[in-house]
């Protein structure tokens, strides 16, 4: 039996609803319809009071969830697409993010963002906004890349007393499958070494992990061994694991699907330049999406976002091979 990344998210929510009376799922079409991607399919039938359809009002949806969280519930908000969370951005960044700091009262809220590009998604159904949310204080930002992490990190997100932005990748929903869920996983804030290698460190997260793994496989034929770090959580950023890896390889590449300017890749490179400059044998590099809105046509989209082909080129330049 195999489980998809999407099923893992649904089962995590089922588990949360079953085991914690405080859990509430709120969002557009999440009720009997089961959500635009079916991430809540079958849950409203079992938990009719705690899986609630909302009007198309992202600001008020998040505001409502903040109020529920202050009162002791553990709400999970499903944004239909990460892109639409910008309508609720004020509530997430200015209200939820600042609330504990201002008042000392925690806001245990999870916002699920169906993120990233899929073929034909276009400018407003493809965005990766983890860096935007990581920029604001008071938020935890998760970017699971595996089926097991999708399951266990969502469960952990709901137990955390702070607002968690849970960036789940839409491309992985159906494409990524696992035979079983791993019984033990790392806690939030810890990166995972997805592959060990001696020649260069590639730091990545979410769907890009799988592109990088493909590159590593190809380069192994040339006796080049990449060390791959899956960040899992982009905020907090596990700088220690990255530095330790760069100390072993001397070279750093960051690969992320988001836009380049002020992004997670830029943050990692800034930290390594600051704390591990002496470890570097070559200037650190990054591969990100192009600095334009995300194109609709598959032929444009496949060039706009990083993929195995463009990451491979960047690794070759990094290693001068």
């Amino acid at each position: 039996m195999s489980i998809t990344y999407l099923n893992a998210i649904r089962e995590a929510q089922r588990h949360l609803l079953e085991t914690d009376q405080r859990v509430l799922i709120y969002g557009q079409d999440v009720g009997l319809f089961g959500g635009a991607f079916k991430a809540t399919k079958g849950l409203a039938e079992v938990f009719p009071d705690r899986v609630m359809d909302a009007p198309i009002s992202e600001d008020a949806i998040v505001g409502t969830a903040i109020g529920a969280a202050i009162e002791g519930l553990r709400p999970i908000v499903e944004m239909q697409f990460a892109d639409f969370s910008t309508v609720g951005f004020n509530q997430i960044a200015n209200n939820a993010g600042a609330f504990f700091w201002r008042t000392g009262v925690p806001v245990p809220l999870t916002v699920r963002l169906p993120s990233g590009g899929t073929s034909g998604g276009g400018p407003f159904h493809s965005q990766s906004l983890e860096a935007v949310y990581a920029h604001y204080p008071g938020l935890v930002v998760m970017t699971p890349a595996t089926v097991s992490d999708a399951y266990s990190m969502l469960i952990e997100a709901v137990t955390i007393d702070d607002p968690v932005i849970f960036c789940e990748h839409k491309y992985l929903y159906y494409h990524l499958k696992a035979d079983t869920l791993e019984p033990e996983t790392l806690p939030a804030g810890k990166a995972r070494i997805a592959r060990t290698g001696r020649d260069a460190t590639v730091v990545t997260y979410s769907a890009m992990l799988h592109e990088v793994l493909e590159v590593a496989k190809e380069l192994a034929n040339e006796d080049v061994e990449l060390e791959i770090i899956d960040l899992r959580t982009v905020k907090p950023l596990d700088t220690d694991t990255v530095i330790a890896s760069v100390a072993r390889t001397g070279r750093l590449l960051c690969a992320a699907e988001a836009w380049p300017w002020g992004g997670v890749s830029a943050e990692i490179i800034a930290r390594i330049a600051n704390e591990g400059f002496h470890l570097l044998d070559a200037p650190p590099r990054r591969v990100n999406a192009k600095d334009t809105p995300i194109p609709y046509h598959p032929d444009l989209w496949s060039i706009h976002r990083p993929a195995a082909r463009s990451i491979l080129l960047a690794v070759r330049e990094l290693l001068r091979i």
């Binding site: 600001d59 008020a60 949806i61 505001g63 409502t64 109020g67 529920a68 202050i70 509530q91």
Partner: peptide, 9 residues
């Protein structure tokens, strides 16, 4: 912004 927070409570 606070209206929906009251609503959530």
């Amino acid at each position: 912004a606070m209206i929906s927070v009251v609503g959530g409570m």
